[in-house]
Simulated scan of single mutants.
Amino acid sequence: MQDHTIPVEALDSVDRIPAAEAAEIAPAKVRIEEVARRASVSTITVSRALRKPGMVSEKTRARVDEAVRATGFTLNPHASALRSGKSNIVTIFVSSTHSQQYLQAADAFSAIIEEAGYEVVLARTSYSFTREIRLMRTLQQMRPAAAFITGVLEQELNRAMFRRLDIPVVESWAHAGQPIDMLVGVSNTDGARAVARLLAERGYKAPAIVTRVSGRGRIRREAFEAECRALGLPPVESVELAAVESMEDGRAALSELLSRGRKIDAVFCANDLLACGALLEARALGLRVPGDLALVGFGDNDLMRELAPGLTTVAPDPVSIGRRAGEMLAARLAGDVLSEPAVCLPLQLKLRGSC
């Protein structure tokens, strides 16, 4: 089911390198003229040998390569991007570097996109709309070839800025109705509803939720609360956080829930770090899991499996998300037209001892 709560935003033959090409030289201390002098060729021949080696003879390439090694000279891809309007850089917007799933997706994506001849740059948004804006202003200068986002852009201002970049973009981790360009999503709504049904089926009658206040956290909370109402369960107690940075956030959230004095017998933590922290806090308080309190998470990092009694969780497949995003972007960068620019991958509910 769609996550409806996300808002909708040739070469010159003269013996002198053109000024625009000369601007490609990165190190100020090593000029292309020095490479040309050592190789006994013209500057334009150096440029051709480095950027289009098929245009020069093997013997000339060897002399240029030797001169480059001797001087440490390199071409500046960012200056080339300014001249040509594009680069070979693909940017990954990672919502949080604390998330094992996002890093697994980034790794799978990178393997595909690097094989296609591109280089990857990682940018951390920290779930911040302000950081998104700053990063996009930086991207306007870098002129990347494409971008992959572990999430979806919610603010229309940020969406509009991305559209103006006019590059292929893949969003992910939500089933948004109107992606900027392409999407590899999962249904947070379906995942949260499945948790509510599981708790009801297993006899829990006083559920609570801990989540982020915005983005996918909000989607999960709204879907969980709606399904609990439909199942005839009492109003869901909740703790909403501005950000999730460590397991300590989960410990503090569970402590707050319990301090309110209302009976709860199950907690849906809409983030792995929160669930792990909640389990540690429950242990510290002498609560039995699941005897006194059931816990369910969302994400399925390694700790979910290793912390006894094992945490039940909603599990996307981050490797499949990253790989599919990489394949879609590589195809678009090669000039292909995608027949399916938006896909929704399945979620699994992995049952373990905490529920």
Score class of each variant (00 low, 15 high):
G326A: 01
S99G: 06
T60Q: 12
R38S: 07
K350R: 14
G286S: 08
P27M: 14
G54C: 01
L233D: 05
D300T: 03
S214K: 03
A200H: 12
C228A: 09
E115C: 07
Q104F: 06
R260V: 11
K59P: 00
N188W: 07
A39M: 10
E227M: 07
T60I: 08
Y204H: 12
V169H: 08
A26I: 07
G250F: 06
L122I: 13
T74A: 05
P309T: 04
T312E: 02
G291V: 02
A196T: 04
A49I: 10
H4E: 07
V170F: 04
E225R: 09
L274H: 00
L280I: 14
R83A: 12
A278P: 02
A342Q: 13
D317G: 08
T313L: 00
A116N: 02
V343K: 03
E132G: 05
S246I: 09
P179C: 04
F268T: 02
R283K: 13
K29D: 00
M304V: 14
I112T: 13
S87G: 13
E171L: 07
S238K: 11
S80H: 03
Q2V: 08
P316Q: 08
V337S: 15
V289L: 09
E222K: 06
F148Y: 14
I17M: 08
E256M: 07
V314E: 01
C276T: 13
I112V: 15
G277F: 13
P346N: 13
R218Q: 01
N88R: 12
Q104N: 15
R251C: 14
L183Q: 06
A284T: 15
I219R: 08
I89E: 05
L122C: 01
S339C: 11
E154K: 13
A330M: 11
S84M: 05
A331R: 09
G117Q: 03
V68G: 05
G72F: 08
W173L: 10
G72D: 02
K350Q: 12
L11S: 10
S110P: 00
G299P: 02
I133Y: 09
V8K: 00
R218V: 00
R124I: 14
S259W: 08
L231R: 10
K52Q: 15
R202F: 04
S110C: 00
K350T: 14
T71S: 07
E227L: 02
S172Q: 08
Y118A: 00
A282D: 06
S187G: 01
R143L: 11
V337R: 15
P144D: 04
L273E: 15
V195H: 03
L157T: 10
A200I: 02
I209H: 02
G286D: 12
A342M: 04
L50H: 03
A275G: 15
F129R: 04
Q141S: 14
M161I: 15
E245Y: 10
R134H: 11
Q100W: 04
A145S: 10
R332I: 08
A49G: 08
Y102D: 11
T43F: 03
A308N: 15
G117R: 01
Q104W: 06
P179M: 04
C276W: 10
F129E: 01
V14H: 09
I180M: 06
P179W: 12
P309F: 03
R163T: 12
A196Q: 06
A10K: 06
T130V: 11
F109N: 06
A253H: 05
V56A: 05
V64T: 05
E240L: 05
S13M: 10
S110R: 06
